[in-house]
Design a protein around this nucleic acid. Structure first.
Lengths: 140, 140
DNA sequence: GTTTATGCAAATTCTTTGCAATACT
DNA sequence: AGTATTGCAAAGAATTTGCATAAAC
C-alpha cells in the first residue's frame, strides 16, 4: 500500500507537482477533513488560491479525496481511506464522520461501521453518509 | 399542532410578514429541502434576494428550519418536522434525508428511523444526520 | 409611536475561467 | 519536444452589511 504523496500520485496517474504533494501531505498530517480555506491557510504563501482549487478538483475526479458532509456551509474534503491502493469503489466513501462543535474539526470514525438502511419501495440506495455532531474526545 | 404559516410564526414569536409567510408556504408546498436559490426562483418577483437570506437566517435561529446536509455545495434547509408544536429539542433534526441523483431533490424519509450509533470512548453524540444518495421512487 | 423587517446599493467572500509562462514526463 | 499545470487577472456567483423607507405591533 502506498504511503507517501509521490507514490499516491503515481498510483493515480497524476503528474507529480509541488502543489499536489503539499496538499496531500497536509491531508495526511492533519488527519481531518479540510476545506479549501483550511488548505489555503497553510499553503497560501507557496501556492495560488486557484491552484489549490484545481488540485482539489483533480483529486476529486481521481477519487483520491471525497467530499465530506458538513453543516457549516463550507465544502470539506478528506482522503479516501484506501484510495491509494487502487480500490476505486464507491464504498470507500461510506464511513461515519464526526464533527466536533468545540474545535470544529471533522474526522472519520473508522471504528464505527455504517448501519444498513432499508429504504421504502422504489428507492435505490447508492451511497450512505453519516455525520455525527457533538464533542470529540480531546474537547470533552 | 399548528399548520398554517401565520400560526407557526406566532408560535415562534416572529412578526408576521409577507416574505416569511411565503417562504414558509413554499417549504410546506414543496415538501423537500430547499436552497436559497430554490426559494429565489419562486419568489424573486416578489421579494428581494437579501430578504430571503435574512428570512432563512431568522428561521434557522428560531429553530423553524434546519440545515440539511448535501454534497452539492449549496446549503439546503428544511422545516423542522415538529418545530411548530413548540418542542424545540435537538432531536427534531434527527432524520434520514434522501437525495435523488436524477431529479436533485432532497427529501426527508420519515419511514426509516435512525440507527443508534455507538461512538468511541470520550465522544459525546449530540446530533446524527444521515444522507442517503441514490434514485428516488419517482425517478427509478 | 416604537420597534423590527424590507429593499436597494455596495462590499465581501467564494469559485471558476482564459491565457501566457512554467514545470513535468 | 510535447503536454499538463501553474499563476495572475478578471469574471461570475454566493452571501453579508449599512442605511433609509416601510410595515408590524
Amino acid at each position: 500500500m502506498a504511503q507517501n504523496p509521490v507514490k499516491i500520485l503515481q498510483n493515480h496517474q497524476l503528474r507529480i507537482t509541488n502543489c499536489r504533494k503539499e496538499v496531500l501531505r497536509t491531508f495526511m498530517e492533519k488527519k481531518s477533513a479540510l476545506s479549501h480555506a483550511d488548505l489555503e491557510e497553510d499553503l497560501k504563501e507557496v501556492f495560488d488560491r486557484v491552484t489549490i482549487y484545481r488540485t482539489l478538483k483533480t483529486f476529486l475526479e481521481t477519487d483520491l479525496i471525497h467530499k465530506v458532509l458538513d453543516d457549516s456551509g463550507a465544502t470539506k474534503y478528506a482522503l479516501c481511506a484506501h484510495g491509494h491502493e487502487g480500490s476505486h469503489n464507491r464504498h470507500d466513501h461510506e464511513h461515519v464522520h464526526f464533527k466536533c462543535e468545540a474545535c470544529g474539526r471533522t474526522i472519520c470514525i473508522d471504528e464505527v461501521s455504517l448501519p444498513k438502511i432499508k429504504l421504502p419501495e422504489g428507492y435505490v440506495n447508492k451511497e450512505v453518509n453519516l455525520l455525527v455532531t457533538g464533542v470529540c474526545n480531546k474537547c470533552s
